[in-house]
Nucleic acid binder design. Sequence first.
DNA 1: CGTTTTTGACCGGCGC
DNA 2: GCGCCGGTCAAAAACG
Length: 317
Amino acid sequence: MEFTSLLTNNTAAAASLDLNSKPIKFLDETPSSMKQEVVESDFIGFRRQVNVKEEKGALIEELNRVSAENKKLTEMLTLLCENYNELRSQLVVQTAKNPPIPNDVRKRKAEAIINNNNESAAANIGPSECSSSDEDSSSKKPREEHIKAKITRVYVRTDPSDTSLIVKDGYQWRKYGQKVTRDNPCPRAYFKCSFAPSCPVKKKVQRSVEDQSVVVATYEGEHNHPNSSKSEIPATGTNRTLAPPPPCSTSVGSSGVTTDPTKPKLSQEGKIDGQELQHYLVEQMANTLTQDPNFKAALAAAISGKFLQQKNRTEKW
DNA sequence: CGTTTTTGACCGGCGC
DNA sequence: GCGCCGGTCAAAAACG
């Protein structure tokens, strides 16, 4: 995530809140014209002049206050962005170091060993890769199949109201089971690749415990056939935006574009993800700010200050 | 009518 | 050995 672009946006937004620059300038310009007007007035007008001066002083004071507040808010926003960026980078580092937490506690021990062995491999996937890939040493079936099934996890953000555990990735899948696991109230769906009967790839899809809007798809094995269809490209209607990286994820989620679980994500996806992530973060930032009563109050004060200036201006003309 | 989905039953691994 | 739990099977239902 490029912090600079985000910061640029935010500072631009903060700058747009700087409602005082113009009014100050405006006020600085007004005294000469006002003085002329006052000089031409009679004795009764002199009292009005005193009142206007007092009002002007109060407004300038208010403007200074709002300006200082605005500056403070800008600094806070910058600090917030910096903190966010720092935390995010730390998260990426941590998730790269620590393997994902498997669902099954018992398998955790076994997988921990595997993941430790594949730590470097998983770290090499790249920042835009939303999956953690490792090789299952087939501890469950030590018999004939010593196929080192590649396990890939893909995180997809979907509409929380969308209860169907469908992750469109360009392949045809046949659902062969569904189970409610102990550590997650959301059911886990089991899929097999139905494009080729001999294709050993299986897929497990389950909603994330932490974020119900995030669907976790776990792929096992490698397709022994090309991508089945292009019609499987996800519908644009579903909200397949970027998932904020779940704790167990090494990176952000899939954009929902055709996803080959056996291959690393295309680099162009990373570009798309970056933009979407930026959008997402900006939205999050905006939500956070709009939900902050202090920010609202400051914004209201700034806007009212602006209106006061405007009103003052129109009255003088 | 063929394909896909649903869902309860069953199996096997693992911990106690 | 028993019970728990994840994964799979397969018959029935749903769908196009």
